[in-house]
Design a protein around this nucleic acid. Structure first.
Lengths: 200, 200
DNA sequence: ACAGCCATGTAACTTGTTACATGATTTT
DNA sequence: AAAATCATGTAACAAGTTACATGGCTGT
């Protein structure tokens, strides 16, 4: 929902045309997440479908302006005033992957963690490099630097967790889980451990 | 891709039937991210479509088993051996939101940050509560605790960043960006600042 | 003239997600 | 008998993403 809501929040400042929205999104997020132009138009049409924006005819320069509706403004306000919740459906791909790797008998969790660690260390170094190479005093630079700092902190946290996982897995050598039936039925049929354990 | 790849990784251990896959996913990720059963079957059909798994006829109990193919195994191996990259397309909703809030003239970035901070503090307390209330010595408990620790570390990092943002915004009172044209055209037409700044 | 950017769109597709229907079996 | 769980599926949709087509304008 980030892109959709971001565009709506920008439109709450005043009418914009599609290409302009990309520009606004880019400079406000430091061009960190490149946004395909086509997505702008898709999203605008969906916002229009939902009654959150209306399209005005093209002006003398051919620009198609979009204007937020009352419902759209309410939606944007609601987004801004409600916190981001990372509980229910927000899956963390790295956490899932490491948890799966750690509990699969065949896979080498340490190798997965080591590979991830290398990549994260490199990523962190790269982030720090560009972070220090650019001016962060202008409003654009400030916004950009905040996004970069968010990434840097997240990567540092990621690394701390990876080390933590490796330590804990070392303390518990038997951490794998073999496949089992969803329910242990006390009926006739194969007893348990159906999977024949075709590990790699 | 997490769900899809996770199911494939589990199937690399041996054939499973749909409901069993949910069970396997749940206990390996600590039931932190509840997985709708319907999604299992959807995903399996898509994996089948892509030639990564094959479906076997139902056994005597009516269970429809799914088996990974060579291509599927290659895909699973590739996933496990390649690190998660959080650079290109992975958008951080909180970072986007705060960056947008900080650069929109009308919105109160401090209020957004304060609301998020409250929610994150509460979330962190809740996470720590359940984390300490459960046994983490069994393999299932270990996997669960690792996922919980990941969430705790991420939330701590989030809080650190929020405080950092508030500090930096305080140092730069003029951080807002007004709407501008995508390109400043030196032509006839409206000069600049088209948006009429209809702030809330 | 030509390359490149500005600008608007369209079509197709992916993963994730939910709601619903159906029936068997198990538990209370 | 009723409620809950097991188990398989279907249909629809949301948001994101990409590839492509089309034109106008601009700078070299």
């Amino acid at each position: 929902m980030s892109v959709r809501q971001s565009l709506l929040a920008i439109l709450a400042q005043g009418p914009c045309y599609g290409y302009q929205l990309r520009h606004e999104f880019d400079r406000r997020t430091g061009s960190v997440w490149p946004l395909n132009v086509g997505q702008i138009y898709n999203t605008l049409e969906r916002l229009e479908r939902d009654g959150l924006v209306v399209r005005s005819g093209a002006d003398e320069l051919g620009h198609v302006y979009w204007e937020i509706t009352d419902a759209g403004r309410a939606d944007a306000d609601r987004w801004m005033s409600s916190p981001v919740t990372r509980t229910q459906t927000t899956r963390d791909e790295l956490a899932i992957k490491v948890a799966i790797a750690a509990t699969l008998p065949g896979s080498d969790a340490s190798a997965v963690i080591a590979a991830q660690r290398d990549a994260s260390v490199a990523h962190l170094a790269s982030l720090r490099g560009v972070r220090s190479s650019r001016d962060d005093s202008s409003p654009e630079g400030l916004a950009w630097s905040l996004v970069m700092d968010s990434m840097i902190l997240a990567t540092e946290s990621e690394l701390r967790w990876l080390d933590h996982v490796e330590t804990r897995l070392g303390e518990h050598p038997q951490h794998a889980l073999t496949l089992g039936l969803a329910v242990d039925r006390p009926k006739r049929g194969r007893p348990a451990g159906v999977g024949s354990a075709a590990s790699a």
